Simulated scan of single mutants.
Amino acid sequence: MKATSTALFEAEGAGTLAPFEQVRPNVWALPLAMPMKHLPVVLSYLVVDVSGGVHVIDPGWDSDENWQRVLDALEHLGSSPSRVVSVTITHLHRDHIGMAARYRAQTPARLQLSRIDQLALNVDPREALRAARVQVDSWGVPDDRRAELDVNFGAEAESAPVEAPLQSDVLLDEGDDLGIDLGDHPGDGLGTHPGDGLGTDSTGIRVVLTPGHTSGSVCLALPGEKVLFTGDHVLPTIFSGLGLGAQTPSNPVTDYLEALDTIAIYDDYEVLPGHGYRFTGLAERRAELAEHHLRRSREAAAVLADDPSASVWSVASRLHWTAGWNNLQGPMLRSALAQTAWHMERAR
């Protein structure tokens, strides 16, 4: 892999915000701050069409400071909130969807989210908590560790009112074209890949469904400029968590591995991720990400070969975790246990 933005690469190492940066003639990267020590920055992208309309990819973490950065970026482009045409969200997580409500209130933009992630947003959180509690019951979690998994709640919480989820204006499906005309900026003129549905001279942006991180996560391919917006599906330095959305009948690990294969046709594109820095070398990074999860599946299979009746907790405690098993707590522990259950399912 090779970083393609010195400013973003250096900021990633320092945990600081890089400046607003041009990626292509009509594409800019806008780093936004997050109040998380381990993940202090999320990347939003602005795309300007031939008529001067601005299209946002991932609105980013919601804060007054971040909204001011958006306004400053628009001013830098000689634009304004009134020129924002669309806001496309790669997946439902707070650090990506956060400022969508501000865009809706202060711009004429249409909000766009995958149909699958919109369905996940619409799930009553109380039902999700009940399902999570049943899940934990089946994992063999020691009594002294159950409380930190945050899945127990009383009658008061069960009857509390639920805030209505954000509703997108456009539901996106695999292969949809966002209809953004970039005009006379076809990148290096290599056009699109055969069979991608856009045509060899397209300057549009195509939706590529890449489940795993969430069930409705999408990447966005811009063939005319040979860039791929990956959200959290592919990041340069982080192994994204899996299954971080509504529960589905499919296995998120399997979904993720298959989705990594799906984007192989874009291996020669520059990757514009949701965190970190822009880079080339997608094939290498895909291989690293796949091996990370395949190794866990092999480890789970080895544990089950020795102890077929082992609980999810028991298996998880014997797998290799980047942060170390003893350091996993709260949401990170819960994610590790969920992933272990999926690896065990694949091993059986």
Rank of each mutant, 00 (worst) to 15 (best):
M1L: 01
M1P: 10
T4P: 01
T4H: 02
T6G: 02
F9M: 10
A11P: 06
L17Y: 02
F20M: 08
F20Y: 01
Q22P: 15
V23T: 03
W28S: 05
M34Y: 09
M36Y: 15
L39E: 04
L39Y: 07
L43Y: 01
L43F: 08
G53V: 06
I57P: 03
D58R: 00
P59M: 11
D64K: 15
Q68I: 09
L74W: 00
L77S: 09
S79I: 04
R83K: 14
S86A: 09
T88C: 03
R94C: 01
D95H: 15
H96W: 06
I97M: 08
A105M: 07
A105P: 03
Q106W: 13
R115V: 04
R115W: 01
I116R: 15
D117W: 05
N122Q: 14
R130T: 11
R133W: 01
R133A: 13
R133T: 00
Q135P: 00
D137N: 10
P142Q: 07
P142M: 09
D144Y: 05
R145F: 09
L149E: 06
V151A: 03
G154K: 01
S159R: 13
V162Y: 07
L171Q: 01
D173P: 03
D176P: 04
D176C: 02
D177H: 12
L178R: 06
D181T: 01
L190F: 06
G191S: 05
T192V: 09
P194N: 13
V207G: 06
V207D: 00
T210Y: 14
G212I: 09
G216V: 14
C219R: 11
G224E: 14
F229W: 01
H233M: 13
P236C: 13
S240Q: 08
G241Q: 07
T248Y: 05
P249Y: 05
P249Q: 04
S250M: 09
P252M: 06
P252Y: 11
V253W: 07
D255Q: 15
L257I: 13
L260E: 00
D261A: 04
I263G: 12
A264E: 15
A264L: 09
G274L: 02
Y277E: 11
L282A: 13
A283R: 15
R285V: 09
E288W: 07
E291Q: 14
S297N: 08
A300P: 03
A302L: 03
A302T: 10
A305E: 13
S309R: 12
A310F: 00
S317V: 03
R318I: 10
W321S: 07
N327D: 14
G330W: 04
G330I: 06
M332A: 15
L333Y: 02
S335E: 12
A338S: 15
Q339Y: 08
Q339M: 06
H343A: 12
M344I: 05
M344L: 07
R346Q: 09
R348I: 07
